[in-house]
Design a protein around this nucleic acid. Structure first.
Length: 221
DNA sequence: GTGCGGATTAGCT
DNA sequence: GCTAATCCGCACG
């Protein structure tokens, strides 16, 4: 029998993110992003991410110089980097690696698995895709904005847990089980070029997008 | 101060 | 497939 734990107690620490970026990308797939505040409690399974890493990556905001916008990327791993794109959508990144090496992982798609204010069980895959498939959409669903920029992953409002999350929509309760105890959390990880970075010259050819090819919630095959 | 363009999305052809 | 929407960071002057 798997061990039931309080969800907050199983959240990933900064240490998890202070590692080599591509390794963290692979390890993040299949884990759960949790958003919670007084009025909301929402969970999604991470199924698609992209790495933006180092000084040579022309697709990365940190390829030029350190500015007030990208400075979080230069800091230690384990903090959120949020930016506004096209004047309309926020994008959620988690900074990786050690201090002064700029790197972050863009969360591109999550599969909604719980929402205190919605009955996800009654939604079609198509409807759920609109909530969590795409970096702009998932931030809109989770109410993530610039206020999370520079915030630690060890905070209360937004965190990642490796545990399987079981929810009961009727009673609005959740339980978490250790990932090792479950056989339902398999990922088939595939890499590709990153989306929307054609302007980045040679860097655009890097296959730094990682996704679970078995998921119906990825942005593209 | 001005101008450009983007780690996107929705809606239409 | 094409393009409008809509803001701000950043380079240049």
């Amino acid at each position: 029998m798997s061990e039931i734990t309080k969800l907050e107690d199983s959240k990933l620490s900064k240490k998890f993110f202070e590692r080599e970026t591509h390794k963290v990308c692979r390890d993040l797939l299949g884990k759960y992003l949790v958003f919670q505040n007084r009025d909301n409690f929402k969970i999604g399974r991470i199924v698609e991410v992209e790495a933006y890493q180092g000084f040579e990556d022309k697709a990365s905001h940190a390829s030029k110089k350190k500015t007030s916008r990208n400075e979080v990327m230069y800091g230690a791993g384990g903090y959120y980097y949020i930016y506004l794109i096209y004047g309309m959508y926020y994008c959620l990144n988690i900074v990786t690696e050690k201090e002064s090496y700029p790197a972050a992982i863009l969360i591109r798609a999550i599969e909604p698995t719980y929402d205190f204010t919605r009955d996800l069980d009654k939604m079609s895959v198509k409807e759920k895709r609109v909530l969590g498939s795409g970096p702009g959409r998932l931030c809109r669903w989770l109410d993530i904005d610039k206020s999370f920029n520079g915030v630690s992953v060890e905070g209360e409002g937004l965190y990642v847990t490796p545990n399987i999350v079981r929810t009961n929509v009727r009673t609005r309760s959740t339980e978490s089980f250790s990932a090792e105890a479950s056989k339902n959390n398999r990922c088939e990880i595939v890499t590709s070029k990153r989306v929307g970075v054609d302007y980045a010259g040679e860097s655009a050819n890097n296959e730094w997008r990682y996704y679970d090819v078995t998921s119906s919630y990825i942005t593209k095959k």
